[in-house]
Amino acid sequence: MAQPEVVVLDYGSGNVHSALRALEHSGASVSLTRDTDAVLAADGLVVPGVGAFGAVIEALRAIDAPRWIGRRIAGGRPVLGICVGHQVLFDRGVEHGETAEGMGEWPGEVTALPDDVVVPHMGWNTVRPPQGTVLFDGIEDERFYFVHSYAVQSWDFDQQSTAMRAPAVTWAHHGADFIAAVENGPLSATQFHPEKSGEAGLRLLRNWISTL
C-alpha cells in the first residue's frame, strides 16, 4: 500500500523539521514546498506556524496560501493546522492591541491568555476531546506539548446556519479554558505541537494520516 503524500507548507515558518520527521515516522511520504500543484494535489496538507498571528497570516497571504487552503477544503482535501497554523484559521487575532484578520474558517478571536498565569503556556497539558473524536482516538487521556501565549477562548458556532455537522472541539485549560483542537470534516487543527508531544503526538498524526 502506497504511503499517503503529505505536503508541509513552506512559507518561511521556522521549526518545521521536527514536523517533517514526525510525519515521516507516522507513515507519510513528506515534502516541504510552496509549489501550487504539489500543495493542491497532496493527500494531506500541513500548515505549521510559530510566532505572531499577524506575521504568519501575512506570510501565508504573500504566497496565496489562503486560496490554496480554501480550494482544498472545498474539495474535501484534508488540511491540518498546527500552533499559529491553527490560530490563523479563525476570524482574527489580537496581539498587543493590533488586530489581524484570519482566514475565517471558524468563528473566534485569538486573544491573550489570562495575565494571572505564567505565559507563555509552555509544557505538557491534558486536553478534553469530545465524543467521536478521530484525532484523539486512543489518546484521550494523554498529555500534549504547548508553547503559546494566545488562544481562542470561546466558541460560537451557529449550527442553524449550516447543514454541515458541527465541528468537534477539544478544550484545554491554562488560566482559562481555550480551544486545543478542532476537527471539522477535511479541516483539522491543534494549538499544541503533536510533533513535540512524544508517542501521543505521533499517534495523533497517525490518526490524521489514516483519514487521507
Rank of each mutant, 00 (worst) to 15 (best):
M1F: 13
P4A: 09
V6S: 02
V8K: 00
L9R: 06
Y11C: 01
N15T: 00
V16M: 02
H17C: 06
S18A: 13
L23P: 07
L23K: 04
T36E: 15
V47G: 01
G49W: 00
A52V: 11
F53C: 05
W68N: 04
W68V: 13
W68K: 04
I69Y: 03
I69F: 03
R71C: 05
R71Y: 08
A74N: 09
R77W: 13
V79W: 11
G81V: 04
H86T: 09
L89S: 01
L89Y: 04
L89R: 01
V94S: 08
H96N: 11
W106A: 00
G108I: 10
T111Y: 10
T111W: 11
P114T: 06
V117N: 04
V119I: 15
P120Y: 14
P120H: 10
T126C: 05
R128Y: 10
P129G: 02
P130Q: 07
Q131T: 12
L135H: 05
L135K: 04
F144T: 04
Q153T: 15
S154Q: 14
S154L: 07
W155N: 03
S161V: 11
T162A: 02
A168E: 01
A172N: 09
H173S: 07
D177S: 11
D177P: 10
P194Y: 12
E195V: 12
S197Q: 10
G198A: 09
L202G: 03
R206S: 05
N207W: 08
I209P: 02
S210K: 10
L212S: 05
